[in-house]
Design a protein around this nucleic acid. Structure first.
Length: 421
RNA sequence: GCGGAAUUGGUGAAGUGGUUAACACGCCGGAUUGUGGCUCCGGUAUGCGUGGGUUCGAUUCCCACAUUUCGCCCCA
């Protein structure tokens, strides 16, 4: 047997139903916010991610799904959505469109080449948006509010927003130095991983699982104390607009997103479910004002967020949220003889063309088995054919809730179903 | 990339170096000569992740690999 690839899953059955329900919910929220759907290729030039995501993180050096294609090109399965959307924005010259800013949303599979673990597969689905072309702090608040509203509408409670500001380049540089100066004398007290991070990515030390609770870390300098006046005012405006939307948030100075391209606003939307561990971060994002320029586009400001579909579904399950999935059958057609079967086929066709969701027996089960099948399919009405009825132009229909049986003419059947559905 | 655990039918699983691999659920059929969801009865794995090895003989022991799973690194 040929098995699926490591870290990939088949989505089917009830899980697929939940999946589609959530996808519909996401689409509907983005449309209410007036975002346009964009669908970019799954495969992109490797260089896009090297430049877009940044070489310094492990993401690009060892966690992307890279190939050499038949034309000797270096290609990569997209590890995230932003780089592709920004590339499409530049390549299609969307900055010239009449409607600005460009508000784009996407949904699709992403890939990372890693050992799978809880809540982290090699192929996973993300949804998210990018707003390109404005530096208005009100749009920061709008973008933050999207996942918050989505989670609320879908039925999740205990959703928290954590925000922080990384300021501008100057802020980051000054803070970087200050943090390293502060930490250097304490390095021997920190874990091996943190010693490693000290050179590579000192910001990450702030949310280390091992050392994060130590006083040394807790009293480390905070980036928000290093914000330039301009950056601070910008951050205050974002908070003001969040207040105006009545979005609860807390400023968490330890939120450092992993990617190099972020500046100013960064945020995470977290659900308070202990069992979820790291996967409790349902969505995250931030502003990236330099990225469009770095990818050879115009110097346009941008902000976006992305969320994991798989972990959203996991959260819904953990929180026992009942999704309103409609998978009931309107009618199931039962028969025994061949002539009844022929009539069943034609009746099925008529009912479907009239907009009813129906099905019939295809496994040659006896009548008892057909009743069971009808229950499995959650059929509201059972249509039980018999040759004598058919001869007289009658159809026997049984209400599977009340168990009442009724004989109607073929002409009456559609009206009867219409009235009862 | 590093470490731990696991892998037996459609499902949950028990089990053994040697004729027919428990039990339960599900499914199919019968009792009920065409109206079920209860009950009773019957049927339902030539196979124990894959490939090697040890052995007279392995699903059971050993090795490798694959996959799953839980962590680490990293996190989009």
């Amino acid at each position: 047997m040929i098995a699926k690839q490591k870290g990939m899953i088949d989505i089917y059955g009830d899980y697929a139903k939940n999946w589609q329900y959530v996808e519909d919910a996401i689409r509907s929220v983005f449309e209410k916010y007036n975002y346009d759907y964009i669908r970019t290729p799954i495969l992109e030039a490797t260089e896009l991610f090297h430049r877009g995501v940044g070489d310094s993180t492990d993401i690009v050096t060892k966690e992307t799904y890279d190939f050499i294609d038949r034309g000797d090109r270096n290609v990569t399965l997209r590890p995230e959505g932003t780089a592709g959307v920004v590339r499409a924005y530049i390549e299609n010259k969307m900055y010239g469109d009449a409607s600005q800013p460009k508000k784009l949303y996407y949904m699709g599979t992403m890939y990372r080449y890693e050992r799978p673990q809880s809540g982290r597969l090699r192929e996973f689905s993300q949804y998210g948006c990018e707003v390109i072309g404005t530096n208005d702090p009100a749009i920061d608040a709008e973008v933050i509010s999207i996942p918050v509203n989505l989670f609320k509408l879908i039925g999740l409670k205990n959703v928290k927003v954590k925000i922080n500001s990384l300021g501008d380049d100057e802020t980051r540089k000054k803070y970087h130095d200050a943090l390293k100066n502060y930490l250097e004398p304490y390095m021997n007290d920190l874990c091996e991983d943190c010693k490693n991070r000290f050179e590579k990515n000192p910001l990450r030390i702030l949310d280390c699982k091992v050392d994060g609770e130590k006083d040394v870390i807790k009293s480390a300098p905070k980036i928000i104390d290093y914000l330039s006046d301009e950056a601070e005012e910008r951050f205050n405006n974002v908070k003001m607009y969040l207040d105006a939307m009545a979005i609860d948030y807390e400023v968490d100075p330890n939120i450092v997103r992993g990617l190099d391209y972020y500046n100013h606003t960064v945020f995470e939307v977290v659900v308070d479910i202990k069992e979820m561990g790291n996967a409790a971060v349902l969505a995250g994002g931030g502003r990236y004002n330099k990225l469009v320029g770095e990818l050879d586009g115009p110097e346009e400001s941008a902000i976006g967020f992305a969320g994991g579909l798989d972990r959203l579904l996991l959260a819904l399950q953990e929180a026992d949220v009942k999704l309103n999935i409609k998978d009931e059958l309107d009618a199931f057609i039962m028969y025994v003889s061949d002539s009844e079967k022929e009539y069943a086929v034609s009746l099925n066709q008529v009912l479907r063309l009239n907009g009813f969701r129906c099905d019939m027996e295809y496994m040659s089960r006896n009548l008892k088995g057909q009743f069971k099948q009808a229950d499995r399919l959650k059929a509201r009405f059972l249509i039980i054919l018999n040759d004598e009825d058919i001869k007289e132009g009658n159809i026997k229909i049984k209400d599977n809730l009340t168990k009442e049986e009724k004989v109607v003419t073929e002409a009456e059947l559609i009206d009867f179903l219409d009235m009862n559905m």
